[in-house]
Design a protein around this nucleic acid. Structure first.
Length: 229
DNA sequence: AACTGATCATGT
DNA sequence: ACATGATCAGTT
């Protein structure tokens, strides 16, 4: 059944194959078509609707929409990520993964980390269009179900460990976006005035801006290219 | 054009 | 404040 032929709430997919099948059926469609079928208004631009595309795809694929600390498809253990790409299929933005615990509650190892959990299994859905194209005119691309392994997994582990060491060591001065080849840290907040606490090198609690882990554009580009050539 | 820091909306 | 969904926009 075509999800778009059935207006109303879509039940979550019961299997990985069903999810992937749904995603493939959306490929090639403009977002305006998805939005119309789902009765979702299309914003003129994304300035005040930055999460619109991701939320639209959640609805179109049958994810339990919401801000819950769970994968998008809990029964399948799969995380959904839309990724904006140009006509050349190369990502135009980095990808947010999760926030970084700067308050001493960071996981003790890579395997226990939230980054590892989040990236264990990701359904990538490229969204084709350039920055100037209206959201409704952007088109769903070919999906990719991805589990990091081999060199990709090693690179993520290496980067996470390096960043984790800076956090544990209280090296606030070195905690910026230049650290990490695939995974790096960037501000993640509604405002630069937002704060969280951090234990610095002198053992003092200080306030600093919240940070999040992001995948660099180059990393996402490589994993998509490996799958689609 | 890429990179880094800043920001927007919504729900828990 | 932090989780979800990300993109914006200034600088290099």
């Amino acid at each position: 059944m075509d999800p778009l032929d059935q207006p109303g709430r879509l039940l979550p997919p019961e299997t990985e194959a069903e999810l992937l099948g749904r995603a493939w059926r959306l490929a090639g469609r403009p977002l305006s078509v998805l939005a119309a079928a789902l009765r979702v208004p299309v914003p003129p631009d994304l300035r005040r609707h930055k999460g619109w595309i991701g939320e639209l795809l959640e609805l179109a694929l049958g994810s339990w929409a919401g801000s819950r600390a769970e994968p998008d498809f809990p029964e399948l253990g799969i995380e959904l990520k839309t990724v904006p790409v140009g006509a050349d299929a190369r990502p135009t933005q980095s990808t947010y993964v999760c926030t970084a615990n700067l308050d001493g509650s960071l996981a003790g190892s890579w395997e226990e980390s939230r980054v590892f959990e989040k990236l264990a299994c990701v359904l990538w859905v490229p969204i084709v269009g350039d920055k100037s194209s209206p959201p409704g005119e952007r088109v769903v691309g070919a999906p990719l179900l991805w589990r990091p392994e081999g060199a990709e997994l090693e690179q993520l582990r290496t980067d996470w460990n390096e960043i984790a060491e800076l956090i544990r060591g209280g090296h606030l001065d070195r905690l910026d976006a230049r650290v990490g080849e695939a995974l790096h840290l960037r501000p993640k907040a509604a405002s630069s005035r937002d704060t969280t606490r951090f234990l610095n090198r002198e053992g003092q609690w200080v306030q600093t801006g919240p940070r999040g882990f992001y995948l660099r554009r180059t990393f996402t580009e490589a994993l998509l290219a490996r799958a689609f050539g």
